[in-house]
Amino acid sequence: AEETGLRVELAEEDDGKKNSIAMRLWVEDPKKLKGKPKDNGAIEFSFDINKENPDDVAQEMIDSGFFQECDSKTVAKSIRDRVALIKWRRERCQQVNV
């Protein structure tokens, strides 16, 4: 996710069971964004990794003024990459347990 200039991490321990998980997103390199982000710090939010769409969260962040419309794809990609990693880790854990 570093190419996007944004960083997304878990804001809580992943127990492997919960669908809705707390995540934290912040700007690591503002130069990689097209628009100017609101200089706010880390944005914490909860996200349902099975039901929700990263594009929707990205749009809500834009609506809330954290990012500009031109960066919607970048924000969505950062969240999508992190969600993919969480899912991959969970699948791997299940395989190990089996």
Partner: peptide, 27 residues
């Protein structure tokens, strides 16, 4: 640090807090 809360009309809550120094990338 202090945290602020923004609630989107769709219902999602965003809690904004300062990024801890230790999490910032090394120059």
């Amino acid at each position: 640090g202090s945290a602020t809360q923004v609630v989107h009309s769709a219902g999602r809550r965003f809690i904004v807090s300062p990024v801890p120094e230790s999490r910032l990338r090394e120059p």
